[in-house]
């Protein structure tokens, strides 16, 4: 195997890895902020892709407007979801939360499938006609865009949590809701904001992956990869999730190239099992004491 192929595989792996990291990040954010593990998150990714498809194909907007409109649209959907369906579930046992969010995902998937039945399944991006060559190697510009865009967003998020007052408030709520409320933080507003950001990140993942894999209702199955990324990182830390996602992406791509498609398909599950058995709190997380 030559260096050029290895380089291409690295770029491809990093690009799918950063998608997984984004999906995992959205899941983790909602969980840390509100205690809800959102099994409809995959469908929010699909919703983002469908929204972008609609804005681009039906309204014929240019890519950059599509990009921003989709993020806003999905953020609003996230707030609506949180206000109407998630809020009543917040104190429910984990079984109820899992099943209810699955149900929400099912409904979203059904609506998406019914509302878009045209044969068009992708939208134009400025990167379609670009070609990137580094020396002998040609690199898919979509991959470069996915990687740089994801990293920019993750950097912004990290800054947001460190420097911004609202970001700090979100962290405070995730650490201790009661204490945060006593400090004058409007907790319910933070809950909504958390879901808005989480859904917008999901939508971003959807927009980014759509030109590569095509828009379809089954896109939501990427949620499993997101879970693996987040659990690898301990379901607790932003850098952990990013490293988890990239690891998964690289392993999958190289495994697929060397050992074939079946290997690629089972990588995520095997990795998940391995981590949960050997280090259930993830590579970066710390074991948590549990109150009985």
């Amino acid at each position: 195997m030559t260096t050029s192929i290895v380089l291409q595989l690295i770029v491809a792996g990093l690009s799918s890895g950063s998608i997984y990291a984004l999906v995992g990040l959205g899941l983790m954010l909602a969980f840390k902020g509100t205690g809800i593990v959102n099994f409809a998150h995959g469908e929010l990714v699909a919703l983002g892709a469908y929204a972008a498809l609609f804005f681009s194909v039906v309204l014929k907007l240019p890519y950059w407007q599509v990009f921003i409109l989709t993020l806003i649209f999905c953020g609003v959907v996230g707030v609506l979801l949180e206000r109407t369906l998630i809020r009543p579930l917040m104190r429910a046992p984990s079984f109820t939360i899992v099943v209810a969010t699955l149900a929400i995902g099912l409904m979203i998937k059904n609506v998406l499938r019914l509302s878009w039945q045209e044969s068009v399944s992708t939208f134009a991006t400025p990167f379609d006609e670009l070609s990137l060559r580094v020396g002998e190697i040609s690199i898919n510009p979509h991959y470069v865009w996915i990687i740089s865009c994801s990293f920019a967003i993750m950097g912004l998020l990290a800054l947001f949590f460190r420097k911004n007052l609202t970001g700090k408030a979100m962290q405070a709520v995730s650490q201790n809701t009661t204490a945060a409320r006593l400090m004058g933080i409007r907790v319910s507003r933070i809950f909504s904001l958390t879901f808005a950001v989480s859904s917008a990140i999901a939508a971003l993942a959807g927009i980014l992956m759509a030109p590569v894999v095509g828009v379809e209702a089954e896109m939501g199955s990427v949620i499993l990869k997101g879970f693996v990324a987040a659990i690898l990182g301990g379901f607790n830390s932003l850098p952990g999730c990013v490293v988890g996602g990239l690891t998964l992406g690289l392993l999958e791509t190289f495994g697929g190239a060397y050992f074939g498609g079946t290997f690629k398909a089972v990588t995520a599950f095997v990795l998940l099992m391995f981590v949960l058995l050997v280090r259930p709190h993830g590579i970066f997380g710390r074991a948590e004491a549990r109150r009985v």
């Binding site: 199955s221 995520a268 998940l272």
Partner: peptide
């Protein structure tokens, strides 16, 4: 066997993964 150590949503994720495999 691996599910013994898991609870709640972790178990849901693992079983979902098993389904996919």
């Amino acid at each position: 066997f691996p599910a013994l150590r898991l609870r709640g949503f972790y178990l849901a994720v693992v079983t979902l993964g098993f389904l996919e495999v």
